[in-house]
Computed example of a mutant assay.
Amino acid sequence: MSNQTGNGIYYALLLILPLSALFARRMPLGRVAVMALAWVGIIATGLVTVALVNRNAWLVSGAHELFYGRDQSVAGNETRIQMAEDGHFYARAMINGVERRMLVDSGATTTALSDGTAAAAKLEVDTSLPEVIDTANGMVKAYPARVATLRVGGITASDLGVVVAPEFGETDVLGMNFLSKLKSWRVEGRMLVLTPQPT
């Protein structure tokens, strides 16, 4: 069954359930028609909203910024990242022009990317040279690749080595091989401050 057929069946079920409830009440046909149109409108509005959010990540980030403030900013030559509610720091990074939210982890030796991010960034992953790395979930077999440019705020790293593995799920990690290229990085209260090397 194709995805489109499956989606069509799902949407039909969304309509059939409320319509069957209306018919079960034995209401006049005109009133059932009006309420059915209202349900169609509600479902269509929801689907359009989901499609817009999926295609425009700025809607989500803009709403988050409106209510919680900016989670990442550039002040002078420094990039400042606000601590998330879970106590971690997440950088908004551009990996070969592809935007991703990356967990900043000073305990990770190498920057690690998910299969999805590697594919989106069009990385050439060397599957002939697996590396066994120790993660929070145990030992994982990962494969090396190189990122042409990885940018966080106003800081850019070129030709950065990374590892890629399916076991990472959807998590991307910014490791020490990026942080060590900086002049300094420090935590001030709930803010991570990244300072680049002088140019």
Rank of each mutant, 00 (worst) to 15 (best):
G69D: 02
T199C: 00
A33C: 07
L160H: 06
A33D: 05
E167F: 01
S114A: 09
A12R: 07
P144Q: 04
S61D: 03
V60I: 07
N7D: 13
A33N: 06
Q82E: 13
A33P: 02
V48F: 10
T127G: 00
N3Y: 13
T49D: 10
A108F: 05
E131N: 14
S20H: 04
R55L: 08
Q4G: 01
T111Y: 09
L29P: 05
I43K: 06
V53S: 05
N77K: 08
G154F: 04
V164A: 07
A75F: 11
T135N: 04
M191Y: 02
E78R: 14
G76L: 06
E65D: 14
V48Q: 10
P130R: 08
R31I: 10
G153W: 03
T109R: 11
F168Y: 03
V193P: 05
E167N: 10
N177F: 05
A24T: 03
F168R: 02
N54Q: 14
P18W: 03
E124Y: 08
G30E: 08
P144E: 03
Y90I: 12
N77I: 10
A136C: 02
S20P: 00
T110P: 06
N96P: 12
I155M: 07
L192P: 03
V34I: 12
V152K: 06
R70D: 06
D172L: 02
I42E: 03
P196D: 06
G161M: 06
D159E: 14
G97L: 00
I95G: 06
A118I: 08
R55C: 00
I43L: 15
L22A: 00
V193I: 15
V173R: 01
G41V: 05
G138Q: 04
G76I: 04
A93E: 09
L113P: 11
L103R: 05
Q82V: 12
I155Y: 07
A38M: 13
M35K: 13
V98P: 01
D105T: 09
M83V: 10
G153L: 04
R190W: 01
L15Y: 13
S128E: 15
T5A: 12
V32L: 04
N77H: 07
E85D: 12
T117R: 03
S73C: 11
G161I: 00
M139D: 05
V140L: 02
G153Y: 06
V193A: 03
A24R: 07
V60R: 03
T111Q: 10
R55G: 10
E131S: 13
A157G: 01
M102V: 09
A57S: 14
M94Y: 12
W58E: 05
D126W: 08
G87C: 08
Y11E: 12
L123E: 11
E99Y: 11
L19R: 09
S61L: 01
Q197H: 04
Y10K: 07
V60D: 00
L182D: 07
S106D: 12
L129C: 02
G153K: 08
K122M: 13
R151N: 08
I16P: 03
M1T: 15
S184F: 03
T199W: 00
K141A: 13
A36M: 10
